[in-house]
């Protein structure tokens, strides 16, 4: 996954602001021919879980459609998702694995320790959905525009 530095900062910032709950949202950008995600913006979303919001998150199909429309306005696509792990490592859980949608998306996790953003990692789902593989996060050159789309929450 390649991402602008301010995208990574925006994800960390959202994780910190959502603490002690999980913050979540969408990664907007383009997919390279080799499947690498280029992330140039994020779209924050509200955690739609009614309970256990400190340990679980849900992004509804309506939230996806809102993010896809925001991406479309900028000539981009939804290329992945992010969420925070409050006081927990930035590694995917069995819940993440069981409830992840399709392979090909980037799944970014930011650990937030005592309210402060810490490690940020990226993952891709194996084609047979059996496991996540960690993806290298590399820097994408900055563009002039802001990387954070208007919040939908």
């Amino acid at each position: 996954m390649r991402a602008k530095n301010d995208v990574l900062q925006a994800i960390r910032r959202h994780g910190g602001e959502a603490y002690p709950e999980e913050g979540c949202g969408f990664l907007l950008g383009r997919m390279d021919d080799d499947g690498t995600q280029q992330v140039t913006r994020i779209q924050r979303a509200g955690n739609e879980r009614a309970e256990d919001r400190e340990r679980r998150f849900t992004l509804s199909p309506e939230a996806y459609r809102t993010a896809a429309a925001a991406a479309d306005e900028h000539g981009l696509d939804v290329v992945g998702f992010y969420h925070s792990h409050p006081d927990h490592p930035a590694r995917p859980s069995e819940t993440d694995l069981a409830e992840a949608p399709f392979p090909g998306y980037a799944y970014v996790i930011v650990s937030v320790q005592d309210g402060r953003p810490a490690d940020l990692t990226a993952w891709t789902l194996a084609p047979d959905r059996s496991q996540f593989h960690q993806a290298e996060v590399t820097s994408l050159s900055e563009a002039a525009s802001s990387s954070e789309a208007a919040s939908s929450s």
Binding site: R49, D52, R56, H83, S93, E94, L97, E99, P101
Partner: peptide
Amino acid sequence: AVAGGTWVRESGGRKRPCLV
């Protein structure tokens, strides 16, 4: 739709972290 989180709930209401 997308969901996930850091914990899974076991029978009996206990919760445990489970990383994979």
